[in-house]
Design a protein around this nucleic acid. Structure first.
Lengths: 109, 109
DNA sequence: TAACTATGTGATAATATACTCATATAGTAT
DNA sequence: ATACTATATGAGTATATTATCACATAGTTA
């Protein structure tokens, strides 16, 4: 059975996974991988409203995967833990595996 | 700007992250790490209804991170891609970092 | 000070997720 | 065939997430 401590860790980990679990947030993480960016540049890049981007950023800061600092009017966001990109490496593997299976299926038709 | 293909990949990756983003599902993944299991044993382990567990399993199969095979009445689930545990390694790092920061904060009071 | 720019937040509506209970399905055993 | 066990699913409710708009805040510049 699950003990309380493990459960607590699972909740925290679920929050972190949840903070990644959105196409726009993944786009943001992928963008920040190549360097820190302010909200307006992120918004331009992913093509969404600043208020919306601001909220998505807040979700990720809250989960502990992003950090930020202010520069004048701008707020610059950056990845707090580069290891987060390991997830993407795995996710790509999973997607490739699925594509392979779909190809097999297609050939069987 | 984001191109269509990247956007498609981001959506798929978000689905995978979403399939991890629940305490019970993380508990299940952690449980399956040590060996394949049937629904009823998973349900007993995490302490939730079988119907609920069945749905959580379906989410993960759908996202491509679990697979299953039938053995008589039982359905045995297993991790499809061990690399999924890399995410947990990173998540633990993130959590530890947060704890450290909280300790700093505490000492400042 | 006034106008401006970047960011964040409250309120709302739309949508998605999660859990529960009852029921369906499929395989097993008597 | 009947009763049983494991699993999955439909329906309903409760809750959470997301996007949008309007507005608030904070720093900048004229």
């Amino acid at each position: 059975m699950l003990d309380k401590n493990k459960q607590l860790l699972y909740e925290k980990q679920a929050e972190i996974a949840g903070a990644i679990a959105h196409p726009l947030r993944i786009a943001i993480i992928d963008f920040l991988k190549d360097g820190d960016q302010c909200v307006c540049d992120i918004a331009d890049y992913i093509g969404s409203e600043r208020s919306n981007v601001s909220r998505h950023l807040a979700v990720m800061v809250n989960a502990g995967i992003l950090e930020y600092h202010k520069e004048g009017l701008k707020v610059i966001y950056s990845l707090k833990c580069k290891c987060i990109t390991d997830f993407f490496t795995c996710a790509v593997k999973v997607v490739k595996q699925q594509v392979k299976e779909n190809e097999k299926l297609l050939r069987a038709i």
